[in-house]
C-alpha cells in the first residue's frame, strides 16, 4: 500500500489504568501509561518506538492491536476508526493488523501443535486455500523452518525458532501492519541477527509495515525508517531514523544515545542521567523529564512543552521554539 494516506494514524491517544486501593476499593488515581500520543505509520514503513521500561510503549502497541481499551483518542487503521466498527467489521479489519511479542513461549498455546497455531487464524477467517498441511508448510518455509516442525509443540523449539513460528502465524493472515513488541530482546546475539534478517526479508516480500517496539537503540536503528522516542506516556521526539539517531534534539534522546554500549562508541565512564523515570501514577508537572534533565529551566517545571515541528521532525522540549502545533484531536478526551 502506498500513497499519501497513512496506514495507521493515532490521534491524541490515552490509555489509562485505574488504581484502586483500600477496603472499599476506591479509585485513587490512574496510571497514565499512554497519555496523549499522536503518531502515524505509512504503508511499507517501519516506525521504531523506543523508550525505557514503564514508558508506555508496550501499552501503546497493545492499544493499537486492540488488546487494551483506550480511554480517549482515535486509532485510524487504513483510514477507518476502529472504534466505530461493528464486531464483524472489526474482526475483518483486525486480520490486517497482527502483533508479535517478546516471549513467544507465552504467546503460543502450549497445547496446540505448530500446524494448529499456524492455520487457526486462516480457518477462523475462512481464508484457507488448499489443505492445512500445505498452507502450514508454506508458512514454515517462509520463516526458514522445515515442514516436519508442523507436528511438534512449541516447547520443542528454541527461543529463536519459537519467534519464527509466531512470525509465521502473524503473516498467515496477510497483514498490512505487524506490531512487534521487543521480538528479539530475549534472544542470544547470534540468533538475534537471524531473526532481524528474517523480519527484513518478510517486510520486503510482503510489503509489510512494522511498528517496532524496543528498548535497544541499535536494533531499532537497524530496522526503522522513522523513530519515535517515548518517555512517561508521551512521545518526546520523532523523526527519520538517521536524524533522530544522528542529531538527537531532545535531552532524553541524547542521554539514551550516550548510554548505548557498543563497539566503536567511547569506552569507559558514561555521562549519566540522575535518578529514574518518575511513576506514571504521579507524573511531575510540566515536562515529565524535567527532574532528570541536565538542561531543565524554570519553564520546564510549569508547562508541558508544545511541539516544535518541521515537515518530518517533531520534538517536545522548551529548548526549541514552538512551531506547527499538533493537529487538534478530533474527539475531546
Amino acid at each position: 500500500m502506498t500513497g499519501n494516506a497513512p496506514l495507521l494514524e493515532i490521534r491524541d491517544l490515552r490509555t489509562w489504568f485505574p488504581v484502586r486501593r483500600g477496603l472499599l476499593n476506591r479509585l485513587v488515581g490512574h496510571v497514565k501509561a499512554v497519555d496523549g500520543v499522536s503518531l502515524h505509520v505509512m504503508g511499507g514503513e517501519t516506525l521504531g518506538l523506543v523508550g525505557e521500561s514503564g514508558c508506555g510503549k508496550t501499552t501503546l502497541g497493545r492499544s493499537i492491536a486492540g488488546l487494551e481499551r483506550p480511554r480517549s483518542g482515535q486509532i485510524l487503521f487504513q483510514g477507518t476508526d476502529m472504534k466505530v466498527l461493528s464486531r464483524a467489521e472489526r474482526k475483518r479489519a483486525a486480520r490486517h493488523l497482527q502483533m508479535i511479542f517478546q516471549d513467544p513461549a507465552a504467546s503460543l498455546n502450549p497445547r496446540l501443535t505448530v500446524l494448529d497455531a499456524l492455520t487457526e487464524g486462516l480457518q477462523e477467517h475462512g481464508l484457507l486455500e488448499g489443505s492445512r498441511e500445505a498452507e502450514g508448510a508454506r508458512l514454515l518455509a517462509e520463516v526458514g523452518l522445515p515442514p516436519e516442525a508442523l507436528y511438534r509443540y512449541p516447547f520443542e523449539f528454541s527461543g529463536g525458532q519459537r519467534q519464527r513460528i509466531s512470525l509465521a502465524r502473524a503473516i498467515s493472515l496477510r497483514p498490512a501492519l505487524v506490531v512487534c513488541d521487543e521480538p528479539v530482546s530475549s534472544l542470544d546475539v547470534s540468533v538475534q541477527a537471524q531473526v532481524i534478517n528474517l523480519l527484513m526479508d518478510l517486510r520486503e516480500k510482503h510489503r509489510l509495515s512494522y511498528l517496532f517496539i524496543s528498548h535497544d537503540l541499535s536494533v531499532v536503528r537497524h530496522l526503522s525508517d522513522r523513530i519515535a522516542v517515548m518517555y512517561l506516556g508521551r512521545i518526546v521526539e520523532e523523526g527519520p531514523a538517521e536524524t533522530v539517531m544522528g542529531s538527537p534534539l531532545h535531552p532524553y534522546t541524547q542521554a539514551l544515545l550516550a548510554a548505548v554500549l557498543a563497539p566503536g562508541q567511547p569506552r569507559g565512564r558514561k555521562l549519566v542521567l540522575p535518578g529514574e523515570p518518575p511513576s506514571p501514577l504521579n507524573p511531575p508537572s510540566g515536562c515529565p523529564f524535567h527532574a532528570r534533565c541536565p538542561k531543565a529551566m524554570d519553564q520546564c517545571r510549569l508547562d508541558y512543552p508544545p511541539a516544535s515541528a518541521t515537515e518530518t521532525r517533531r520534538v517536545h522540549c522548551h529548548l526549541y521554539p514552538p512551531r506547527v502545533p499538533d493537529p487538534a484531536p478530533l474527539l475531546a478526551p
Binding site: 546475539v189 540468533v191 541477527a193 534478517n197 541499535s218 536503528r221 530496522l223 539517531m245 544515545l257 557498543a262
Partner: peptide, 13 residues
C-alpha cells in the same frame, strides 16, 4: 551486532 551508526543492511548472522 546491529549498530546505532550504520544504516541497516542484512546482518551477518
Amino acid at each position: 551486532m546491529p549498530s546505532v551508526q550504520a544504516p541497516g543492511g542484512r546482518l551477518e548472522a
